[in-house]
Design a protein around this nucleic acid. Structure first.
Lengths: 186, 186
DNA sequence: GAGGGCATGTAAGACGTTACATGATTAT
DNA sequence: ATAATCATGTAACGTCTTACATGCCCTC
């Protein structure tokens, strides 16, 4: 099987106990979204592909009249996930429109650059709030189910957002200081 | 004109003094790549589009027998870039395979999770090295051409990579400590 | 009975990368 | 001479999001 970028999200989520495509999407949205997003348009076709490849099994499991497919990893699926986990990571991408604007911010006035820095900070504050909101849930799973991975990554995200906020504040202070020293520029 | 994600990279790079598609690609690769990548397959078609829309002008400007198109922003192009710069940013995406593996790392032994953390750290160390290597160039442009934006963003990237390395080291220490307290787990 | 959540899926299109094709110039 | 760099582009392919379609279940 030729793995795609969603292959291991799906396999990993099943390993963590997800039983339907819907649950995979929920968990991805509430916990993995900030570093690895996935949509239905990727998840459901990928599940079919993985089933054909024998890495996943599915069973019809309707709840009343509502249809449902219950999914599970096969031994081959566990194996495939494990092999991937043992390889060093290589994808590391970042797309930040705020930084792009900052990059071109010489076309702005000093005061406008300061506003921009403020807006960049606001984005990271918002990220921090979103992640902090799910912290209790992750903590609970950590304690009750022994799942340390999701909690570890969540803490990375929260600490990252806090670091970025602090960086912005520091630069805001520096730029304000420079503007005060050379008031003509703003 | 309906802007795409490459529209403003192109306009901004022209504003910073790039005169050919090739130069845009060079500058993007050496300085904006870590937070906003762009490929030839995006840049050249986008330049045509922007020229049709009247935001960019081009002129045949061969060097000897080697053909070349020299590009420039029009007033409308400057205006379009400026309006975008005045809007708050909204795209903020992150794709980190290392974090994804860490997320699923409960399927690993404690010692293997430590190896993984080490590999994640190595990625950020590598990023830091790449960015630090271009620092002198950015500094020079900052001083000589008064371009503060690119330098500001580069410092963000370097500080981010350093923060991430420190976070990994801290977690490595913590995990090693836990393993020592409960030696059976590793 | 209306709205929200559970649940599965597809289609169209936007987005992006890679690889290739071409050819001149410059440095070794 | 030959390799690297300057320079412009396209085609194919793969990825990803958005929007839509469908319908049941549960709570208010």
């Amino acid at each position: 099987v030729q793995p795609t970028s969603t292959t291991f999200v799906v396999l990993g989520m099943l390993k963590l106990g997800c039983r339907t495509g819907y649950e995979i999407k929920q968990l991805a949205d509430t916990s993995a979204r900030f570093f690895w997003a996935a949509s239905y348009g990727q998840i459901y076709p990928e599940l079919r592909r993985l089933e054909e490849a024998g890495l996943v099994t599915s069973e019809d499991d309707p709840q009343g009249d509502r249809r449902r497919r219950t999914l599970a990893l096969t031994a081959a699926g566990e194996q495939f996930l494990s092999e991937w986990l043992h390889q060093p990571p290589h994808v590391l991408e970042y797309r930040d429109e705020g930084l792009l604007k900052l990059f071109f911010s010489d076309a702005l006035l000093a005061s406008e650059r300061l506003d921009l820095l403020h807006a960049v900070r606001a984005q990271y504050e918002e990220l921090g709030r979103r992640l902090t909101a799910i912290r209790p849930l992750a903590e609970a799973k950590h304690t009750r189910l022994g799942q340390e991975g999701p909690s570890l990554v969540l803490e990375f995200g929260i600490a990252l957002s806090e670091w970025a906020v602090a960086w912005c504040e520091e630069q805001e202070g520096r730029l304000r200081g420079e503007a005060a020293r050379r008031p003509a520029a703003s």
